[in-house]
């Protein structure tokens, strides 16, 4: 039982945020939104592939020189990577801890199961795990080139085409992009609620926005492998 005097000694903001479920969800919401913004930019960048190898490779090079001469070569990229890494770690850690709490809060399951009830929650959790694994593969494939069939530094266009010329590359990527769509669909609305940004009136609008964004992202990302498969890009 909570002692009555607990309200008299208040812990700091950071403690309150990380120690409570509501605060931890807010961490997930903020990091989630940050990663979502990154995804939007990433997707738009990907679409440059339709303008041919020079445009696409040039864009990749520009990313490395962004901010020069204030920043040095690739600094911007490393800052972005650091931010993303922090987001992924915080998001994943919070998700892991919350999931454990949530499981502990229902130690005995209902005999009569109602599958609809936890559809969204299950999709988010499994979707999150799939995405985490995908990110590892994706970095080894197209950032470091370690597992890329071509793996040629400075030629992202060629590497992308190489990946999407394999059956497993296409399969992994397409499954992951569907997971992205489902994750964003519930995640954005959920983040809006967690941050208290979604009121009674904006509820419907945010739901529509979440679904539209989820659909756009999935379609935008899937456009590249489909284009390679159909030969539009080669």
């Amino acid at each position: 039982m909570a002692p009555a005097t607990r309200t008299d000694t208040r812990p700091s903001t950071v403690t309150l945020i990380w120690r409570t479920t509501v605060g931890k969800k807010a961490v997930m919401a903020v990091t989630g939104v940050a990663m979502l913004l990154y995804l939007v930019v990433h997707m738009l960048g990907n679409l440059k592939i339709f303008f041919g190898p020079e445009d696409f490779n040039g864009y990749a090079h520009w990313l490395r020189t962004l901010g020069e001469p204030f920043l040095r070569y690739e600094w911007f990229l490393w800052f972005a990577r650091a931010g993303l890494l922090a987001s992924v770690v915080l998001h994943g850690l919070a998700a892991y801890q919350l999931t454990r709490l949530d499981r502990a809060a229902r130690p005995v399951a209902y005999v009569h199961r109602d599958a609809r009830r936890d559809y969204a929650t299950r999709t988010m959790r499994w979707g999150g795990v799939i995405l985490a694994l995908f990110v590892v593969w994706h970095i080894l494939d197209l950032t470091t080139g370690t597992v890329n069939p071509r793996g040629e530094a400075g030629n992202p266009y060629g590497n992308v085409v190489a990946t999407f010329s394999t059956w497993y590359g296409n399969t992994i990527y397409c499954v992951a992009m569907l997971a992205v769509g489902l994750h964003v669909r519930h995640g954005l609305l959920s983040a809006g609620r967690t941050l208290g940004a979604v009121g009674r009136r904006s509820q419907h609008a945010v739901r529509v926005a979440s679904e539209t964004l989820a659909l756009t992202l999935t379609a935008g990302f899937l456009a590249v492998p489909l284009a390679v498969m159909t030969g539009v890009v080669n």
Binding site: V22, K24, A104, D118, A120, H186, T194
Partner: peptide
């Protein structure tokens, strides 16, 4: 010991 909210609306 209550769990956290995942905004399912159940």
């Amino acid at each position: 010991g209550f769990g956290g909210c995942t905004n399912t609306g159940a």
